[in-house]
């Protein structure tokens, strides 16, 4: 394609990045758009992944846009591609496979990856991941019918999976900790009440602290379930799979050499611009200045990240609109007695 217009590069193939690409295409028809993602698949809805337990196992059923969309929309989709470095002075991105891309504007929407508390880091190889389609299908295939899953933490993404697994006939044990219900910020006393709701929904709830926290995780003995978790008080649990859902850490390593300001995520103004005028950020990777709280804060949830992608795109092509979230962030109990989180609402 002849580079008649600007080259907009988006790092991150999540909801935020793909929404930005779509908006950019509409607002800047002559531009060149490149969307870089680590995933081997076209952009799909990660919030949907628990559906693998409801029989959806073809990746094509998870796509945000059909494959032909990218050609039609002239969006160069770079899959299975990792960004190694961003040189903000020369406006050059170096990809891990050693290719260089020049950009005019850059949107970082690389999202976050699962946070794992330091004390559990050594057990990582024994934990099943659920962050990609491939992970989800692998877990689904590995679990026997009615199998037992231990979920450590239990953020709202995890709890969405947990309730799906319970509803599809699996046993779920929640080892609750400080990140349970993340990113909801609960009032004192609410936690206990919500844990009780989870138990009523069919999960076995174990407070990690009450058992002296997790001491070790090990492979199950022969003839036993594949995993064993041992607590400080020597009680143990056995399960077919152990997963940790303890919130997200922003994926910003490749931005460390770019010179833009980073705290935990990329710091952006209310118009989602970083401290470099050509670089914007959106989604779980960015911290937005909150005028009221006088601090940079994260905004989570499908609606938020999508809106951020769209806003960033508008501002990239010359807009200057400020960010505002209308995401409901309150966790509550529904009339039927089950838990409800607005974060579970996704298109």
């Amino acid at each position: 394609m002849a580079a008649v217009g600007k080259h907009h590069v988006i790092i991150g193939g999540g909801i935020s990045g793909s929404q930005a690409a779509d908006t950019l295409r509409t607002l800047d028809p002559d531009s060149r758009i490149t969307l870089i993602t680590l995933s081997r698949l076209p952009v799909y809805n990660r919030y949907d992944l628990p559906q693998v337990f409801r029989g959806r196992q073809d990746w094509r059923d998870f796509l945000v846009q059909p494959p032909e969309y990218y050609r039609r929309s002239r969006i160069s989709l770079r899959r299975a591609t990792r960004v190694a470095n961003v040189d903000a002075t020369r406006r050059i991105i170096t990809l891990a496979h050693n290719e260089e891309l020049r950009y005019d504007t850059l949107l970082v929407a690389s999202g976050g990856r699962g946070y794992l508390p330091e004390e559990l880091a050594e057990f990582l190889p024994l934990l099943d991941s659920f962050t990609s389609f491939e992970d989800a299908v692998t877990v689904r295939r590995r679990l026997p019918e009615g199998g037992h899953v231990i979920m450590i933490g239990g953020d709202m993404i995890g709890l969405d999976l947990a309730r799906t697994m319970v509803e599809t006939g699996h046993r779920v044990t929640l080892v609750a900790g400080p990140q349970t219900f993340w990113p909801h910020r609960l009032e004192a006393g609410e936690r206990k009440q919500f844990l009780a709701v989870l138990a009523k929904m069919g999960m076995q709830v174990v407070e990690s602290e009450a058992h002296g926290n997790i001491e070790t995780i090990e492979p199950g003995a022969k003839g036993m379930p594949a995993r064993r978790i041992v607590f400080g008080d020597n009680t143990d649990l056995r399960a077919d799979s152990i997963m940790a859902f303890c919130g997200l850490v922003p994926s910003v390593e490749f931005m460390l050499g770019s010179g833009v300001d980073i705290e935990r995520g990329l710091l952006v103004s209310r118009s989602l611009r970083t401290t470099n005028e050509a670089i914007y950020a959106a989604g779980d990777v960015c911290q937005i200045w909150d005028q009221d709280e006088k601090r940079y804060r994260f905004y989570y949830g499908w609606k938020n990240v999508r809106a951020m992608g769209e806003l960033a795109a508008r501002n990239i092509v010359g807009g200057d609109e400020p960010w505002s979230s209308n995401q409901d962030e309150s966790l509550r109990v529904q009339e039927n007695g089950s838990l409800y989180s607005p974060f579970w609402e996704y298109a």
């Binding site: 081997r40 698949l41 076209p42 494959p67 032909e68 969309y69 990218y70 050609r71 160069s76 989709l77 770079r78 899959r79 299975a80 591609t81 990809l95 891990a96 496979h97 050693n98 290719e99 260089e100 891309l101 020049r102």
Partner: peptide, 25 residues
């Protein structure tokens, strides 16, 4: 999935797949 030589934009296979084709780096 990796090139020893520095590639200009468009120099790597991964940049040319249609969205419907599956990459195996």
């Amino acid at each position: 999935g990796h090139s020893i030589a520095k590639l200009p934009e468009g120099g790597h296979v991964s940049g040319h797949l249609r969205a419907g084709q599956l990459p195996y780096p």
